[in-house]
């Protein structure tokens, strides 16, 4: 990648807990180093509403849990050069997948009707429908880099981003693992 031009970095948060984004912020003052090399063009951390074209690197946190997640991912993929499955949810569907053995209906009934809410009802307005199963990103699109971890540590994230910025494929097996 061209050294003289700043890379365009995006991050997005699908079916996850935002823990990976928190960990990203945990790289602390090194954010300033990063800022010299990349522009954050889309992220829950910045105020941009539309996912832009021509993104160099996108970190995708979270599994595909809803139709909206899938819709977003399909939009991101053609606009991104390097798509990074960021954290266990994006890679394995992790916690969101714990509903999978039970199916959507049983899950919703249990959570919204049987758990003893005051006015039990399953929300349908303004929420995207759940996919039959929460799934990892690579079941639908090509993923270029996987960063396992729940969440990946700040060091791992910083290292991985630096490698990507330098045009290398990060070798992460010694730094992180599923559930790290």
């Amino acid at each position: 990648m061209k050294k003289n031009k700043k890379l365009r970095l995006a991050t997005i948060w699908l079916d996850g807990c935002s823990g990976c984004h928190m960990s990203f912020l945990d790289i602390d003052e090194r954010l300033l180093l990063l800022a010299e090399k990349v522009d954050i063009v889309f992220s829950p951390l910045v105020d941009v509403k539309v996912f832009p074209e021509d993104v160099d690197i996108t970190l995708v946190e979270g599994a595909l849990g809803t139709e909206e997640d899938l819709h977003k991912l399909m939009k991101i993929r053609p606009r991104t050069k390097i798509l990074v499955a960021f954290g266990d949810c994006a890679i394995t569907a992790n916690i969101p997948s714990m509903r999978n053995p039970f199916g959507v209906e049983d899950t919703l009934n249990y959570i919204y009707l049987e758990m003893g809410a005051d006015r039990p009802q399953i929300p349908t307005q303004g929420v995207p429908p759940l996919l039959p199963r929460a799934q990892p990103l690579h079941n639908y699109v090509k993923v270029d880099v996987f960063i396992p971890g729940c969440p990946p540590s700040a060091d791992t994230i910083f290292f991985a981003l630096n490698e990507l910025i330098e045009g290398r494929t990060p070798q992460l097996s010694q730094m992180t693992r599923f559930g790290a």
Partner: peptide, 9 residues
Amino acid sequence: AAAAKEEAR
């Protein structure tokens, strides 16, 4: 799907 996935890459 094959085409879409290709395109998505």
